[in-house]
Lab assay of single mutants.
Amino acid sequence: TYTYKLTDEEASRRAEDEWRNRGYDVRVRNNNGTWEVEVR
């Protein structure tokens, strides 16, 4: 499981799409203004 911490929502969406396209399960959540993109 990888977790990315990003401050930019758009960057988190791009990361989400990119990993999803590669067949990974992705979750995005906002934690106090930081976007966490979790990849498994």
Rank of each mutant, 00 (worst) to 15 (best):
T1D: 07
T1F: 13
T1M: 11
T1H: 12
T1N: 10
T1V: 14
Y2W: 15
Y2P: 04
Y2G: 05
T3N: 06
T3R: 08
T3P: 03
T3I: 15
Y4P: 03
Y4E: 05
Y4I: 13
Y4T: 03
Y4F: 15
K5D: 07
K5Q: 13
L6H: 12
L6K: 03
L6N: 06
T7W: 12
T7S: 12
T7G: 13
T7I: 12
T7K: 14
T7F: 14
D8F: 04
E9Q: 08
E9R: 07
E10C: 15
E10R: 07
E10W: 09
E10F: 08
E10D: 11
A11Q: 10
A11I: 04
S12I: 07
S12L: 11
S12F: 08
R13L: 09
R13E: 04
R13D: 03
R14H: 10
R14D: 06
R14T: 08
R14F: 10
R14V: 10
A15V: 15
A15S: 05
E16F: 12
D17N: 13
D17G: 10
D17I: 15
D17Q: 15
D17H: 13
E18V: 12
W19H: 03
R20Q: 05
R20F: 04
R20M: 05
R20H: 05
N21I: 09
N21G: 11
N21M: 11
N21D: 10
R22C: 00
R22E: 05
R22M: 12
G23A: 00
G23P: 00
Y24E: 02
Y24D: 02
D25Q: 12
V26A: 04
V26E: 01
V26K: 01
V26L: 00
R27Y: 13
R27T: 15
R27E: 14
V28I: 12
R29G: 06
R29N: 11
R29K: 12
R29E: 08
N30T: 06
N30D: 09
N31P: 03
N31V: 14
N31W: 07
N31E: 10
N32S: 07
N32K: 08
N32L: 06
N32I: 02
N32E: 10
G33K: 02
G33E: 04
T34F: 12
T34L: 12
T34W: 12
T34G: 05
T34M: 13
T34K: 07
T34A: 09
W35S: 00
W35M: 02
W35P: 01
E36F: 13
E36Q: 05
E36K: 01
V37H: 04
V37S: 00
E38R: 05
E38I: 14
E38V: 13
V39L: 06
V39Q: 00
R40Y: 13
R40F: 14
